[in-house]
């Protein structure tokens, strides 16, 4: 709508509300960064006040403790994102373009899986991954995240592929193109932008996940960065600056994605929640 109709006092009022809201959203983030930049002495003497002598020593400490897990998360999130995106594209394509008996029910059963509380499958999951010999491996985590990504990637690609006209498919079929040919020649090239949206959606979700990382790993070999950050909280000496620095490092990739690809992030969130 148009703000010119609003009188100046009203506009000022709106800005005050906007700034108050921003304070609510930003204060914790400011607090996080502020604490992470403090030296141990400054943390003890003035825990909350704005940092006077910023130092990156806490970052150095934290990075030394979580760098391995950071790499684990990177491999895990990239791999599971790639796998679940390509599989989701395949199934979204079929559900959109080839109706068969029961396809609606099957589609429904698959996307409902997105909303299942992970606690309800936790115990069998641990046993299953263990029985495959994948406990405490990145493979186990990749498999798990790929599996739980399937419902949403299927839905997102379905929503993405559905607007592609059926007539295109029909013409190709008349030319004798197979399901596979149509996928590689028509669907995949047309849904490449969709990969960016789905990829970002999946990457941010998987990167931030904690419970599977907690239950499927038992050491630095495969533990993701969320678990490593939670472990930075020691029992006795609360080294909050290091804890905060680690926390900030751990969300840096997602934060950057939000700042630089906000449009794609928003698209993914909306595609995942409502029909376009």
């Amino acid at each position: 709508m148009n703000y010119k109709q609003l009188s100046v006092p009203v506009q000022i009022g709106i800005y005050i509300v906007l700034l108050a809201l921003s304070l609510f959203y930003l204060l914790p983030i400011y607090s996080l960064i502020n604490t992470s930049l403090k030296s141990e002495q400054e943390l003890v003497s003035a825990p909350v006040s704005p940092v006077k002598n910023p130092t990156f020593s806490a970052y150095k400490d934290a990075f030394g403790k979580i760098n391995k897990s950071f790499l684990n998360s990177l491999i895990m999130a990239l791999s599971a994102t790639a796998l679940s995106s390509i599989f989701g594209c395949m199934s979204g394509y079929i559900f959109s373009k080839y109706k068969f008996r029961g396809s609606n029910v099957l589609f429904f059963l698959i996307i409902v899986g997105f909303y299942i509380a992970p606690q309800s499958i936790l115990i069998p999951l641990v046993r299953f991954i263990g029985s495959l010999g994948l406990y405490n491996t990145l493979f186990g985590l990749i498999l798990t995240h790929t599996a739980y990504g399937m419902p949403i990637t299927t839905l997102l690609f379905y929503n993405y592929i559905d607007p592609i006209p059926h007539s295109l498919i029909e013409i190709a079929q008349i030319d004798g193109a197979s399901v596979f040919n149509i996928f590689t020649r028509i669907i995949l090239p047309l849904s490449l932008p969709g990969f960016a949206v789905v990829g970002i959606f999946q990457f941010t979700n998987i990167w931030n996940e904690f419970l599977f990382g907690l239950t499927l790993t038992s050491g630095v070999a495969s533990q993701p960065v969320t678990v490593a950050v939670a472990n930075l909280k020691g029992t006795t000496v609360a080294a909050w600056n290091v804890h905060m620095a680690g926390a900030f490092i751990s969300i840096a990739p997602v934060l950057l994605i939000y700042i630089f690809f906000l449009r794609l992030v928003i698209k993914g969130l909306l595609l995942g929640s409502i029909k376009e």
């Binding site: 906007l18 809201l21 921003s22 959203y25 930003l26 204060l27 914790p28 983030i29 607090s31 996080l32 604490t35 941010t204 990167w207 931030n208 996940e209 904690f210 969320t226 678990v227 950050v229 939670a230 909280k233 909050w240 804890h243 905060m244 926390a247 900030f248 751990s250 969300i251 997602v254 934060l255 994605i257 939000y258 700042i259 906000l262 992030v265 928003i266 969130l269």
Partner: peptide
């Protein structure tokens, strides 16, 4: 403002928990 309102969504719960315990 839109970015600011959306920013918390990008935080993992582990990090949110850390921040809010401190807050």
């Amino acid at each position: 403002f839109r970015l600011i309102f959306l920013l918390p969504l990008s935080f993992s719960f582990v990090v949110s928990a850390t921040m809010w315990v401190w807050m």
